[in-house]
Write a protein that binds this DNA or RNA. Structure first.
Lengths: 158, 158
DNA sequence: GCTTGACCTCAAGTTCGGTTGAGGTGGGAT
DNA sequence: ATCCCACCTCAACCGAACTTGAGGTCAAGC
């Protein structure tokens, strides 16, 4: 399969993998999870629209700052399905992310500074210090790894 | 077992769980992983030194900002084993964390702002944008969830 | 004397974010 | 004709960070 001469403007999965640096297996996974989409050619091979690269860039950037895939999917679900997203569509998504990240950054700064001063003052305890306290959104989260920006809580156990 | 009248200054696992908000099962797990320690009483029950609460506070605060347990353990391993850690011991640990968190905060700010401006300018692509590029430390990390502050890289596959 | 509650151990299950591998298709180059 | 390569599917596995459950001990309280 010659890599350059596919008549349409679509990309094979290998090309997407090369250009994005994401493993083919991960692209399969993202598609299964509904984060990216593709059509198929005559031979049942995936063909990706070029804008998938933007999606992937967004996915990876979001992961790097601790956002779980489920939340990334929610954000991407805001993009139009029928047509290729335009600047304005992305801008809305980006605006939301900007707020979320700012909140998390503020939180991290608080932890960083509290850790510093609380250890200095010797109050690193549960009674007095706001560092780790009942507003801890991560307590009571069930199994699985703890992560930042947990987004929507897990369904209550019945 | 009366909760208040244990003659020594040690805490049962239930008391630690109550005071810290961490499940007993998680405390077992942390002990297995070497993040906390205990001695045993005559009846083989765990007895925790009071400073375990500080350790746990540190663990949870670190987790909330995305540090994996393995790295937290490394940090805690700097504390003296033989005696109860003092201010100065904790201060060293806190100083290191301060640097690490500051770096991560800077990184998050960059991502936040790049996401904002790159989406504005339409360059959210792999070719031109520093948002997601080969210096991406998380590419080629193998299975398991992606996390912040990955610390020491995984051993190379043979 | 029996139940209740807190504790113990050890094995197995769970979620997330993928990877690995087995087995199969289809096309281009030698 | 045969080889290789890129692609396909589906099932199983991995690591992190726990939880859940089965089965057992021990002391206190009714």
């Amino acid at each position: 399969m010659p890599q350059s001469l596919n008549s349409t403007d679509q990309l094979s999965i290998g090309q997407v993998a090369d250009r994005s640096g994401i493993a083919v297996s991960a692209l399969h996974f993202y598609e299964r999870e509904g984060l990216i989409f593709s059509s198929r050619n005559e031979g049942n091979q995936r063909r990706f629209n070029r804008d998938v690269l933007r999606r992937i860039a967004f996915i990876r950037a979001s992961q790097r700052v601790g956002v779980p895939l489920a939340n990334i999917k929610e954000a991407l679900d805001e993009l139009p399905l029928k047509r290729t997203p335009k600047e304005g569509d992305w801008a809305k998504v980006a605006k939301r992310w900007h707020e979320v990240l700012t909140a998390q950054i503020d939180y991290m700064e608080r932890v960083r500074d509290d850790l510093w001063t609380c250890i200095g003052c010797g109050c690193l305890s549960f009674q007095r210090c706001r560092l780790v306290n009942p507003d801890d959104a991560m307590s009571a989260e069930g199994p699985g790894p703890r992560r930042l920006l947990p987004g929507t809580p897990r369904p209550e156990k019945h």
